[in-house]
Simulated assay, not measured.
Amino acid sequence: MAAGAGARAKAAGALALALVLALAGANSEGDALSALRRSLRDPGGVLQSWDPTLVNPCTWFHVTCDRDNRVTRLDLGNLNLSGHLVPELGKLEHLQYLELYKNSIQGTIPSELGNLKNLISLDLYKNNISGTIPPSLGKLKSLVFLLW
């Protein structure tokens, strides 16, 4: 009986550790998205649901997550947003789609987007992006769609 209790305690401890790690990941993703929100002007209030006090950004509008609550998609196209991109976006390590087309985003593409190893699509079409494509994006093996 004692051996069974020990195994249950170990399993409970492992589950608690996994939960803490998942929440830490969700918090860092939420922090990255909050940095983006602070850098953008949002006259239509479309990012109003982006509440940085929530543990999980997967409940925010225009954010899609996988079954492990990791951000995989940002759909922010044609929302009348202005401002600039932030380097913190490079922390969204599971991001596959970054859709920002038809806004008034300006400035350069942060080189930190080269950290997004799973990025398939980066759509910055019809914005005011300046400069060149950072060389770091050239190492993204999954990237098949780049429009700017």
Rank of each mutant, 00 (worst) to 15 (best):
G6W: 05
L98I: 11
Y125F: 12
Q96I: 02
N118G: 09
L79P: 02
K102N: 15
G138E: 01
R37K: 08
R38Q: 09
A16L: 12
R41C: 15
K102I: 15
L143R: 12
A32F: 08
L98G: 04
M1W: 05
L116W: 12
Y125S: 13
Q96P: 09
V55G: 15
E88A: 07
T108G: 07
L76P: 05
G25Q: 09
L23D: 14
N27H: 06
L23R: 10
T59R: 08
T108L: 00
R38L: 05
L76Q: 10
A2S: 02
P87F: 15
Y97S: 08
D75S: 15
L74A: 05
Q96S: 07
G13I: 03
D31W: 02
L137P: 01
L81H: 02
L146Y: 14
L76D: 01
G25Y: 09
N115F: 11
P135T: 03
D66S: 09
N69K: 10
D68H: 15
L21C: 06
L15I: 00
P52K: 15
Q106A: 15
L21H: 00
I109D: 08
H94S: 01
E29N: 11
V46E: 06
V55I: 15
G4H: 10
L76E: 09
G13A: 12
L74W: 08
L113M: 03
Y125K: 07
G4F: 05
A2M: 04
S111W: 10
T132V: 06
A7L: 02
E99I: 10
K10W: 06
G30K: 13
I133S: 06
E88D: 06
G25M: 12
L147F: 10
V71H: 03
V86F: 09
